[in-house]
């Protein structure tokens, strides 16, 4: 264990532990947009910037992203200095200009006192802030169907060459983990459409209610060893089935 200081408070941490994790454990609030516990930090949104220094740095300090900066002995972390707050505010202004329609960004901007953004504003329909949570989730945890394509201002999240993906399993993890609800999907009856591909939701073998795409069942089956068909019962029927099983047990 090592000791460091966050906003004047001495705290203990493991060497190399990321500052954000330590701060959150200690109840120090640091805003994030691209952080998701399930995936490696990326450092893309720059909202979690904090100022760090050390006693031996002779007054010199630097801004770092708390999400991936490793803790070291005697580090002095300040999470709300003027420079930090100003940088976060500027970043929010840039994001507002990109996604003027996003509730989340507008709320955060208000918190940082950004009442009159001055930069030229983009299209209202744009919601994606390119935090890369969806792509990291899909690539690291699911099947890697989507990625960041193009670069710079042209950058966007999409399937390779924006073609229909044959590895997507329609699990919706990308859409559901998006902090700004930028990924569109549609689910009507037994059909679920995402990234230009329509998946058939297998009807519950007992009641016919939609369960999950066959592709997701196959992917799960490979990971867990359960039979694909075992996934095709809806929650309600499974619970009822469980209840019936109990009925057959003698008390």
């Amino acid at each position: 264990m090592i000791e460091l200081t966050i906003d004047g408070k001495r705290v203990q941490a493991r060497k190399g532990e990321h500052l954000l994790a330590i701060a959150r454990r200690e109840g120090v609030e640091i805003p994030t947009l691209c952080h998701h516990e399930a995936v490696e930090p990326s450092g893309a949104c720059r909202m979690c910037m904090v100022e760090v220094t050390r006693p031996d740095w002779e007054g010199w300090s630097k801004l770092v992203t708390a999400c991936n900066f490793p803790a070291e002995e005697d580090l002095i972390v300040r999470t709300r200095t003027d420079k930090v707050m100003q940088t976060r505010k500027e970043i929010l202004e840039l994001l507002i200009a990109r996604t003027p329609g996003s509730q989340l960004i507008a709320e955060m901007a208000r918190e940082y006192g950004l009442d009159h953004p001055t930069l030229t504003v983009g299209e209202l329909s744009e919601k994606c802030i390119l935090c890369d949570i969806c792509t990291r989730v899909c690539q690291n945890l699911v099947t890697g169907a989507i990625s960041r394509i193009n670069r710079g201002v042209e950058k966007e999240v999409n399937t390779p060459f924006a073609e229909v993906s044959d590895v997507c399993i329609g699990c919706l993890a990308c859409a559901k983990s998006c902090p700004t609800d930028a990924i569109e999907f549609k689910q009507v009856g037994l059909e679920r459409t995402i990234w230009g591909r329509t998946f058939d939701l297998v009807p519950c073998t007992q009641c016919g209610a939609p369960t999950l795409p066959k592709e997701q069942a196959e992917w799960l089956s490979e990971r867990t060893g359960m039979k694909v068909e075992e996934y095709f019962v809806c929650v309600k029927c499974k619970a009822a089935q469980t209840a019936r099983t109990y009925e057959n047990i003698a008390w």
Partner: peptide, 21 residues
């Protein structure tokens, strides 16, 4: 630089665009 920015982080991707503007 706008053309060549990778577009990963906000300041470079968005900031340069406005600077060019």
């Amino acid at each position: 630089l706008v053309e060549e920015s990778c577009g990963k982080c906000v300041p470079c991707r968005e900031g340069l665009r406005h600077l060019l503007d």
